[in-house]
């Protein structure tokens, strides 16, 4: 076997894995939408559909030991970081077998063992926490990096500015990833943000800053690869702006009066999953049949997660008191 074929096969495997992860996020979220509509999933739910390339592109450069902090729209970050979808679905169902034993739900879904330091109900709150994880890695000389995912709504939160400044002066291995999905709830980023190009916010904290097409997983992955390499070499934080879009409302139930269907269609026609699928078809690394098989296996995995969640026990009411403190 020639070396070029070896590289191709390695590259194919990498692309296939990214496609599988993006598709898993998409199918998971589509199913959550249904489960929520059927009131089997309660509470507040924010779906990541449309933004898959960001989480997957970034996390394709991470190991299980690396850290991520997430947002209220956190399911995609979990799946990209390798969190088990069965545990996730059980969590959304509020069951004892959930990743957080039914204590967190959608907005606080986490798996600290996999470095997933939590979705977060407070916009921008993950940024200082990511800085702390970066500080910890640097102090322990572990080589781990911390990725802070945040959205354009958090771009104007004080905590994010403080965190970016501290990461910069302490030269911490933190990658700030802006998911510029255009809207903070109903408020347009163009209205709410004083700068046209958000990447200047990173430059003003003296960190390398790039802006990439967040609907292109390969572009995101490439930018993240450079930022992660810099962080691991001890060269400090980076800022990546990913222009992206959420196809669904801010939350399930959002009437979306702040945009038109046509606005959404512009991005749907630029879909990150379709884009990668097309590219792989063109370079011969994925046949139609292979894609259908992949999709079927992802759908099966999601179906199994629902069966698992639905058949899992509820927590006992007495468990309400558990895990407030390590010791009383």
């Amino acid at each position: 076997m020639s070396s070029s074929v070896m590289v191709d096969s390695k590259q194919k495997k990498r692309l296939l894995e990214m496609l599988r992860r993006m598709l898993t996020i998409r199918r998971f979220e589509e199913r959550v939408k249904k489960e929520f509509a059927a009131t089997r999933v309660k509470g507040f739910v924010h779906l990541y559909i449309g933004e898959e390339a960001v989480a997957v592109g970034v996390c394709s450069n991470l190991t299980d030991a690396d850290y991520v902090t997430s947002t209220h729209r956190g399911h995609g970050h979990c799946i990209a970081k390798g969190v088990d979808v069965k545990g996730m679905m059980a969590e959304l169902y509020g069951r004892r077998t959930g990743t957080c034993k039914g204590k967190g739900g959608s907005m606080h879904i986490a798996d600290v063992g996999l470095g997933m330091l939590g979705a977060n109900g407070i916009v921008g709150a993950g940024a200082p926490i990511a800085v702390g994880a970066g500080l910890s890695s640097k102090y322990r000389k572990s080589g781990q990096v911390a990725v802070c995912f945040f959205s354009d709504g958090a771009l104007n939160q004080g905590a994010v500015h403080e965190a970016m400044n501290i990461a910069s002066i302490w030269k911490l291995p933190v990658i700030f990833v802006l998911e510029n999905n255009q809207f903070a709830e109903s408020t347009s980023v163009r209205y709410a943000t004083s700068v046209k190009d958000p990447s200047v916010r990173g430059e003003s904290y003296s960190m390398p800053s790039v802006r990439v097409d967040g609907m292109d997983v390969l572009a995101v992955s490439q930018a993240a690869a450079e930022a992660v390499a810099r962080a691991r070499k001890g060269e400090g934080p980076s800022f990546i702006v990913c222009d992206t879009y959420r196809y669904m409302g801010h939350f399930e139930g959002d009437d979306q009066t702040y945009r038109t269907k046509e606005d959404v269609d512009v991005y749907r026609n630029n879909d990150p999953i379709t884009k990668l699928r097309k590219k792989m078809a063109e370079d011969g690394s994925l046949t139609e049949k292979e894609f259908e098989e992949l999709d079927a296996s992802v759908l099966k995995e999601i179906e199994e997660s629902v069966v698992y969640a639905d058949s899992s026990e509820w927590p006992a009411p007495s468990e309400v008191l558990d895990d407030v403190y390590t010791s009383r």
């Binding site: 850290y67 902090t69 600290v112 330091l117 709150a125 940024a127 200082p128 926490i129 990511a130 800085v131 702390g132 994880a133 970066g134 500080l135 910890s136 890695s137 102090y139 322990r140 911390a146 004080g158 905590a159 403080e162 965190a163 400044n165 501290i166 002066i169 302490w170």
Partner: peptide, 27 residues
């Protein structure tokens, strides 16, 4: 490396303490 001066950024450095505590330090 064990005695860190912070900017006057309470949300930033208290939060950094939370993140460091969650990842193996005792800040």
């Amino acid at each position: 490396d064990r005695v860190l001066d912070t900017p006057i950024s309470e949300a930033g450095f208290v939060g950094a303490g939370v993140g460091a505590a969650a990842t193996g330090l005792r800040p």
